[in-house]
């Protein structure tokens, strides 16, 4: 048994300790907003927060979360009203949308530590998240918008 907190709720799951957090969330807790993309920390679709830090849940074993707090896309805000979620909607970022949970969680960790990121800060924080639809310029714009930055970054 491993005990931890997900989105403010205490959880106990009966899995082998090497089970990645991703599969505990998806298959055991039914939190499917966190996505499987590569399984080797290359695409960022599985990004969640562990004690506030963005981590790749596909390669982080649940044992690393024992006694700790996990936040997933479902728990980022009670009603989808996080400034990033609002900006994502205003900018119409998603296409297929599959990577966007991970994108938003990476961006949320960035803004938590750096409320006014530059384009270079965004590149550095977001280049671990792949989007095959190519929504990167809109992601950049939405992060700037959520941060209240004047610069819009990228292009139309």
């Amino acid at each position: 048994m491993v005990a931890f907190t997900v989105n403010g709720k205490e959880q106990n799951v009966n899995v082998t300790p090497d089970t990645p957090i991703l599969w505990v969330l998806r298959d055991h807790l039914g939190l499917t907003g966190t996505k499987y993309g590569c399984g080797i920390a290359q695409c960022g679709a599985c990004t969640v927060h562990l004690e506030g830090q963005a981590i790749r849940s596909c390669v982080t074993p649940i044992s690393a979360a024992a006694g700790k707090k996990i936040t997933t896309i479902e728990g980022l805000s009670p009603d989808g009203s996080h400034p990033l979620q609002k900006a994502w909607i205003a900018v119409e970022v998603p296409q297929c949308g599959y990577c966007q949970s991970g994108q938003i969680m990476s961006a949320a960790a960035l803004l938590a530590s750096n409320p006014k990121p530059s384009d270079a800060d965004i590149d550095s924080a977001m280049s671990g998240n792949i989007c095959r639809c190519g929504t990167y310029n809109r992601i950049r714009r939405a992060i700037h918008q959520a941060a209240g930055n004047d610069t819009q970054g990228g292009a139309a």
């Binding site: 499917t32 907003g33 499987y36 479902e74 994502w88 909607i89 119409e92 970022v93 949308g97």
Partner: peptide, 17 residues
């Protein structure tokens, strides 16, 4: 406004997986 945008920002959009 795209009808599928809000669920794609809060984890509720349902994919095959």
């Amino acid at each position: 406004a795209r009808t599928d945008t809000p669920p794609k920002t809060n984890g509720t959009a349902g994919y095959g997986i």
